[in-house]
Design a binder for these strands. Structure first.
Lengths: 210, 210
DNA sequence: AATTCCATCCCCTTTATTGGGGATACCCAG
DNA sequence: CTGGGTATCCCCAATAAAGGGGATGGAATT
């Protein structure tokens, strides 16, 4: 319940607001604030806070690069990105860099405190429109038109298990059908996708048809 | 604020609990409940609810397959998956199938109602451990140290050709070495990546290297 | 000099995959 | 009702892949 927190933001006003909010909250202790990503790389490893609130949009080093470098040295550090924009690409780059949560800046202060609780509890707090974008990533990451429009549901199901690396026998056991049936489905999948091997099918599926 | 909601769950008790909860809540109207995925495919397009609460674990047709089929016909339908397990693979398959949110079943009823509000507002409600798994997916999506740092240049070259779907013989011809040598390299690649088949190696490479 | 890693080649066996063929049954649409 | 598509099962056969072993030469490190 007692978290040490650091703030990284190059806007002095926001920085002070956040520090004031954190220090005025029970169970939180703000151990410092950095005005740049470069400074954060020096201060944060020294302060060793539980959670970092990181502005994503900073001059010179971006919050994304900063979190990537911090995470390389401190894998267990929890980082919440703060942003004014909800740009899709920034979201994914930040998450790939190791961010543990992603919040819009215009967030009620109690929501921010809740998010800090949540991330320390092992969650991944995201503002709702951010979460939507993340989920949409999976939607469009689904099977390509070529894959989904030609394959039957059963064939798609089996393709999923092929991608998972299952042998025919394992697929058969998992679906409760015979290995021969699996073979038939797989052959149909290959024909429909115009591939000659499991690997080509998997690649086509993962690359969304490219 | 006025949402029509349908429930799909093959457990009669849970179904009744959910219906009672929804009907007892202002701003919600439960338009029906289905005891199976098959029935849902018939009823839901007819009822045209705003939101569907879908059990992921049902006999015969799984909730995942059901949501995939429903979404194919009704792309704007909002689907919240309900699960007792937090299995990573199920989460991703459900999201890929088009689910808009993912909740654990043992959720306080007010949280469930909040989630319904959130999803209709364009969000993507997720229980916190679910969200964590989703974010972890992006973390591991970075260039994998496991792939790039352990493999020799030759092994990486061969892994590339594996991904391209080449047979061992084709790889051998392309590199001007014998098939036996290819086999040896491939075996080394498998050991270093801790996989047991070409498919698993390819998936590991594509998922973590792209 | 010794060790370690890489790349190359060869042997063995067993299992998995692939490519045709055919068959039954179901459901849905023309 | 007669297709078409789907899902299920079975047969044949050939090829590909995997897992184990061992061997050589070279390059780099210790």
């Amino acid at each position: 319940m007692n978290h040490t927190i650091a703030v990284v933001d190059d806007d002095a006003g926001i920085r002070e607001d956040l520090v004031a909010l954190l220090d005025g909250s029970p169970g939180c202790r703000c151990v410092g604030a950095c005005a740049s990503g470069e400074q954060a790389l020096i201060d944060i490893p020294f302060w060793r806070p539980t959670v970092v609130l990181m502005d994503i949009n900073m001059a010179r080093m971006s919050g994304i690069e900063c979190v990537a470098r911090l995470k390389a040295r401190m894998p267990d550090l929890l980082v919440l990105m703060l942003t004014v924009y909800e740009d899709g690409d920034s979201i994914f780059r930040a998450l790939k860099a190791g961010a543990n949560g992603y919040l819009v800046k215009r967030l009620a202060s109690n929501k921010l405190l809740e998010a800090i609780e949540e991330v320390t509890a092992g969650g991944a707090p995201m503002s709702c429109h951010i979460a939507r974008k993340v989920v949409q990533f999976f939607h469009q990451a689904g099977p390509s038109p070529e894959v989904s429009e030609n394959l039957s549901p059963r064939e798609l199901e089996i393709l999923d298990l092929l991608v998972a690396g299952c042998f025919f026998k394992e697929i058969a056991d998992q679906l409760g059908i015979s290995g021969e049936t699996v073979r038939t489905h797989v052959n149909h999948v290959y024909r429909k996708l115009h591939v000659r091997s499991r690997t080509e099918a998997v690649v086509k599926y993962l690359r969304k048809g490219a």
